[in-house]
């Protein structure tokens, strides 16, 4: 694969609660000349693949936590985590909360220890 300086490469963990078989990674590419926040990246993925679920609400302050997510193995706020063109990122749901679908988590419930996603 030839890496382009105008593309962000994403490996995103998919989880479909209606299907058996746990989680799997899926590759996406987002064309951009500018750096994007992880939150903006998620919205772009959802716009091209409707089945990819993510929360889209934001407070524009980096505080509300609607965008909590795991990027390259670290739990972060997606709205203030920047990814530059040419970079590759691994996106997973935040590790502390129960996963509802893909990146959407239930903030009121903790992740269970035997959750298969956490073990991956």
């Amino acid at each position: 694969m030839i890496e382009s300086k105008s593309v962000i490469y994403i490996q995103a963990l998919r989880f479909d609660p209606d299907q058996q078989g746990g989680s799997r990674f899926q590759s996406y590419e987002v064309a951009t000349m500018e750096a994007l926040s992880v939150m903006a990246l998620l919205v772009k993925i959802h716009e091209t693949d409707a089945s990819f679920a993510c929360r889209t609400s934001t407070c524009f302050k980096g505080q509300c936590g609607s965008c909590l997510i795991r990027v390259n193995g670290q739990d972060v706020l997606g709205c203030v985590t920047l990814v530059r063109p040419g970079e590759a990122v691994v996106l997973e749901p935040h590790s502390k909360f129960r996963v509802i679908r893909d990146m959407v988590v239930d903030f009121s419930q903790p992740r269970e220890d035997d959750n298969d996603i956490a073990k991956m």
């Binding site: 929360r55 407070c59 302050k61 509300c64 609607s66």
Partner: peptide
């Protein structure tokens, strides 16, 4: 609640 809505902004 507290992670969505307009008031947060």
């Amino acid at each position: 609640i507290a992670r969505s809505g307009i008031t947060l902004t």
